[in-house]
């Protein structure tokens, strides 16, 4: 039954002799928001780096749709349907909001230099389709009014929303979100969380994994929690279970 989703098996990575990620095994299922919590330096971001191919694991395997994706370069991981929100948002600063989202909408095939020359006839309708899709996602993220603004002049919160919109528009089915609410004010946090809930509600095939420090956010949106410490998964389970666990509360929450 549970073959869908992203499966990580025995994943390890050492850097400068330190085990940053140590034999991590986890499963992220679709239709669910899974939170990855743990103190700073627990290896959460590194785990994301390993999944998206920014770093190569020393050992272990990552399965997605029965394919082994560990060690693939980042663009190939992305083409397999795994998208990522970076901790430091990373919008395309010199592009407009519209172009930022559009850049996520094009297929690999349409991004070849010869594409426009082979499709001279259909180009107009192709562009219209893309524009429609971009507008759809801009409405979804509530950014439609800002579509011609250069991304560099957006506020930090707006940039985060733009980055989330961008990975949504790219059609990824697994979304790895690294601290989507960090540095945002309560209003923006609310907006981001609503978007996340909307994603899961509207499309049960999406898998959301988020690294989060804000416990109230975790309790609000996450169905499932993995608790990481010193490179290992020390607890996992339903959110209410894990956060209710006395040991977790002591170690992590200091309660």
């Amino acid at each position: 039954m549970r073959t869908e989703g992203l499966k990580i098996k025995n994943l390890s990575k050492a850097m400068n002799g330190l085990k940053i990620v140590d034999r991590v095994t986890a499963t992220f299922l679709p239709g669910r928001i899974t939170a990855l919590v743990g103190p700073n330096g627990a290896g959460k971001t590194t785990l994301f780096h390993l999944i998206t191919g920014e770093l190569k694991p020393d050992m272990g395997e990552i399965f997605y749709r029965k394919k082994k994706i560990a060690g693939l370069p980042p663009y190939k991981v992305a083409r397999n349907g795994i998208g990522r929100l970076f901790q430091d948002v990373r919008v395309f600063e010199n592009l407009t909001v519209f172009e930022n989202v559009a850049s996520a909408c094009y297929s690999e095939r349409s991004e070849t230099p010869w594409f426009p020359f082979l499709h001279i006839k259909g180009l107009r309708s192709f562009n219209r389709d893309i524009a429609d899709r971009v507008m759809f996602w801009l409405e979804f993220g509530g950014l439609a009014d800002l579509k011609d603004t250069p991304a560099s002049s957006l506020s930090y919160g707006q940039q985060k929303i733009l980055a989330i919109t961008r990975i949504m528009a790219a059609g990824f089915s697994i979304l790895l979100l690294d601290e989507p609410t960090a540095g945002l004010n309560p209003v923006m946090i609310k907006r981001v969380l609503n978007i996340l809930k909307k994603i899961i509600k509207e499309d049960k095939s999406k898998t959301i994994v988020l690294v989060e420090h804000n416990m109230s956010v975790v309790t609000e949106v996450a169905d499932w929690v993995y608790f990481m410490n010193e490179g290992r998964i020390s607890f996992f389970g339903r959110t209410d279970h894990v956060l209710g666990d006395q040991e977790v509360r002591e170690i992590y929450l200091g309660l």
Binding site: T52, A78, F92, S103, Y106, E108, P113, P116
Partner: peptide, 27 residues
């Protein structure tokens, strides 16, 4: 035509932030 094409946009995306563009599947 190339400047205006999806290819041109992808190049600009890579220029502005290679890691993010690669994360969107651009090689």
């Amino acid at each position: 035509i190339i400047y205006k094409s999806p290819f041109g946009l992808a190049l600009k995306a890579l220029r502005d932030n290679e890691m993010a563009a690669e994360g969107l599947g651009k090689s």
